[in-house]
Measured scan of single mutants.
Amino acid sequence: MASQGTKRSYEQMETDGERQNATEIRASVGKMIGGIGRFYIQMCTELKLSDYEGRLIQNSLTIERMVLSAFDERRNKYLEEHPSAGKDPKKTGGPIYRRVNGKWMRELILYDKEEIRRIWRQANNGDDATAGLTHMMIWHSNLNDATYQRTRALVRTGMDPRMCSLMQGSTLPRRSGAAGAAVKGVGTMVMELVRMIKRGINDRNFWRGENGRKTRIAYERMCNILKGKFQTAAQKAMMDQVRESRNPGNAEFEDLTFLARSALILRGSVAHKSCLPACVYGPAVASGYDFEREGYSLVGIDPFRLLQNSQVYSLIRPNENPAHKSQLVWMACHSAAFEDLRVLSFIKGTKVLPRGKLSTRGVQIASNENMETMESSTLELRSRYWAIRTRSGGNTNQQRASAGQISIQPTFSVQRNLPFDRTTIMAAFNGNTEGRTSDMRTEIIRMMESARPEDVSFQGRGVFELSDEKAASPIVPSFDMSNEGSYFFGDNAEEYDN
């Protein structure tokens, strides 16, 4: 783990906690998980779902989305002020799938948001429990990260689609708070800032007046979040320049895209947490497990152990491969979309394939898809080993990566060399080191050039047997250095459309 220093740990961010010791953190995270579980059980009762239907990941996603929508204050306010045809701002819903006479049927349900809020609060001892809501947002974000390569979004903001390893959390809503900021990748933060800068260039009043003052505060806050992700002084200094700019424009845009590229080699610290679907927490609570009393951590053995003992089902389209669908969801559960496939294969105990080789589309089923041909199958979400999630980018030494994705962002704290394609990355730096950030740029390029592919990161860190909950005997895996390590390699994943 990167030293926490003055930073709060993510469990504290996750639970809005002030400084807590490890036991208190485990208890408050457990409380959050228990609340999600209780809410899910109650919703299944309301909807009269069978046990099997309640364990269907598509039903879980609909129920999670309903509660997130019920608590989305800004959108609710907007919907009330701008009524649109056929949208009731006070209601929320989605597809629920039921097994009827041996076939899967889709039923569109509609609930009062007020009623959903009441059920959620009741499951969370009367609190709004925003930490639990954020947790579900991060699960949705991790699922998107594993399912889609955001080529269009990258290109629109002047970045290269091969930089997708920097895009963790790119679909997280803005209201996801400190826990959300911690899991956002460098590219995601750059993209958010670039969008602001572009608006400022096109709209003279963007930075002016009372609204402009708020915009400015948001801009500086985002700059500080991004600065905190960088691990070298030169990158941090460049972020200070971007933040202090009187009138952010093209120079800042250039600096930010430069920094994003540099992060492929001088990786930023991005938190990883295993956020599971509500249909995993519900049955665990129903079986009598007391998360608050037992304590829970999002970055240790607990999620692995929970998945070892969970039964989750998914709808499967006619030509999809259930094992591939399982891999997709497994990666999402562990926030591992940008991790090295060699490491993932070792931990999972079966070969993890790149996205383009998977015969599976996303987990969600569109409303126009034919239910007649839908089957369902068990998702295999178990693992051979477990490993500690990392909050750091690993040290800054790398190795060759593949054509589709030119770097990785480690999820697990496991000893290995970190793949990246130096030639491709360095070719993108057209040696432009003039301007006010020239000395920093020169320094950053120097550090990137001296990074050695064969150097090892996370020295001495290994994986653990599932029986080793105290992480007492690390097993340090050895990897084939020459092997392909990137998930979005030469990829044809669908595009994420909101």
Rank of each mutant, 00 (worst) to 15 (best):
S413C: 12
K470P: 00
A284L: 15
S176G: 12
R293K: 13
L353F: 06
M1R: 13
D290C: 13
N368L: 06
T215C: 06
R361Q: 02
V456W: 10
R150A: 00
C275H: 02
L226K: 08
L358S: 06
R208H: 03
G102M: 04
V242Q: 06
S84K: 01
M66S: 09
S9Y: 05
N492P: 02
L328C: 14
G295C: 11
N319V: 02
I425Y: 09
S438T: 13
R382L: 05
K348T: 03
A70F: 03
L226S: 07
G435F: 13
M159I: 15
E18G: 09
M136E: 05
V186R: 00
S376D: 02
E46I: 02
L49P: 05
Y487V: 02
R400Y: 04
A471D: 03
T424F: 06
C164V: 14
R216T: 10
K229S: 06
L418C: 13
F39A: 08
R305V: 02
G132L: 07
V190I: 11
D290N: 13
Y496Q: 06
L418K: 02
A260V: 15
W104C: 11
R243C: 13
F429R: 00
N211I: 11
R355D: 04
R446N: 12
L226G: 01
G435H: 04
M191N: 01
N370F: 14
E115Y: 09
P419G: 00
G490N: 03
I57R: 01
C333T: 15
M163R: 00
N59R: 00
C333F: 13
H272A: 01
A181M: 12
Q308H: 14
E14G: 10
P277Y: 05
E369G: 10
A27Q: 10
K351G: 08
Q20K: 10
R391M: 05
G349S: 12
I138N: 10
Q241E: 12
V194C: 05
M163G: 04
L61P: 00
N368S: 13
M13G: 00
W386T: 05
K348E: 09
F346A: 15
P173D: 04
M371D: 01
T442Q: 01
K31D: 02
V463T: 13
P277N: 04
D88I: 02
A178N: 11
E114F: 12
G126S: 10
G54V: 10
T215A: 15
R55C: 10
G93E: 12
N430S: 13
L61Q: 01
I119F: 12
L344D: 11
T373K: 05
A123S: 13
N370W: 10
V186E: 06
L259G: 01
Q459D: 14
A263D: 02
V270M: 08
A263C: 14
P318S: 07
R382A: 06
I25N: 11
T433M: 00
R156P: 05
I445L: 14
L466N: 05
Q399W: 01
K214T: 08
V456E: 05
S314M: 06
D491C: 10
V100K: 13
E372H: 08
R55K: 15
C223V: 05
D455G: 04
E53K: 12
A278H: 07
L226M: 13
S269P: 10
Q231A: 14
A260T: 15
G460K: 06
L306D: 00
N417E: 08
M447F: 11
T62H: 01
H140D: 06
E254P: 11
L381K: 03
L307N: 04
A123P: 05
D468E: 13
L110V: 15
K229R: 09
L418Q: 07
S245W: 10
I96Q: 00
D145P: 00
Q398C: 12
R156Y: 05
Q415D: 02
Y111V: 13
E73T: 00
S467F: 05
T257Y: 10
Q459I: 04
R156F: 05
S467Q: 13
Y281K: 07
V155D: 10
G268H: 03
M189F: 09
A427G: 11
R98P: 00
L307C: 11
S335F: 07
R117I: 14
R195N: 05
E294W: 00
E14P: 01
G158N: 09
N205Y: 10
D340C: 05
D421K: 08
S467D: 09
A123Q: 03
G462T: 00
D72S: 00
L226F: 11
K325F: 10
Q42S: 06
R204E: 02
D255E: 13
D160T: 02
E210I: 06
V463Y: 04
S345A: 03
C223L: 11
E252S: 05
G169R: 05
I96G: 00
A27T: 13
P322R: 08
N483P: 06
F71R: 07
L358Q: 05
M238K: 09
E81P: 00
G435K: 06
G132R: 09
R436L: 03
